[in-house]
Design a protein around this nucleic acid. Structure first.
Lengths: 75, 75
DNA sequence: GCGGATTTGTACGTATGTATG
DNA sequence: GCATACATACGTACAAATCCG
């Protein structure tokens, strides 16, 4: 999934992957994304990199973050 | 300047400080801000915290970042 | 053109705090 | 109280871009 040798930064690769998972319907509106630690383990990246990617999706309005609960696909 | 015990996160305190330095005219349009390592040392915070604050000012359009050159007050 | 210095960019790891369930 | 999850903050390392001698 993630190519750490690519010219595209890992966090942008992750943005693209998560956006695809959302737009494909695999991750559905009002449903939580996998937790940040889970995504970090799933893709073999640091949690900070996951947070960087999610922050971009949040800016785009695709994701809503709720402290203590999780990151949700915008409804 | 920075109160690490405040309820206001350090990076938001830094946003307020830098915004004031810009709006007061101390930091002038098209002139560079002090470098990130310099600001980090000046305020006794980590460089990541400085970058967090600058990213917000960039989103607000007050700062323009040029890789390899520096962060500039929007002209 | 080359090398070194400076500055921002990316990525990692760790620790602690806050909110929720 | 405890476990889970996000928020903040620190530190480190290296890459990439720029500039200058």
């Amino acid at each position: 999934m993630i190519d750490k040798l690519s010219a595209t930064p890992v966090y942008l690769q992750l943005v693209a992957i998560l956006r695809k998972r959302i737009e494909s319907g695999e991750l559905q509106p009002d449903r939580p994304l996998p937790s940040e630690p889970y995504l970090a383990a799933e893709y073999g990246v640091a949690r900070g990199t996951v947070r960087h990617a999610i922050a971009i999706l949040r800016d785009e309005g695709l994701v809503v973050t709720v402290p203590g609960r999780g990151n949700f696909v915008a409804g």
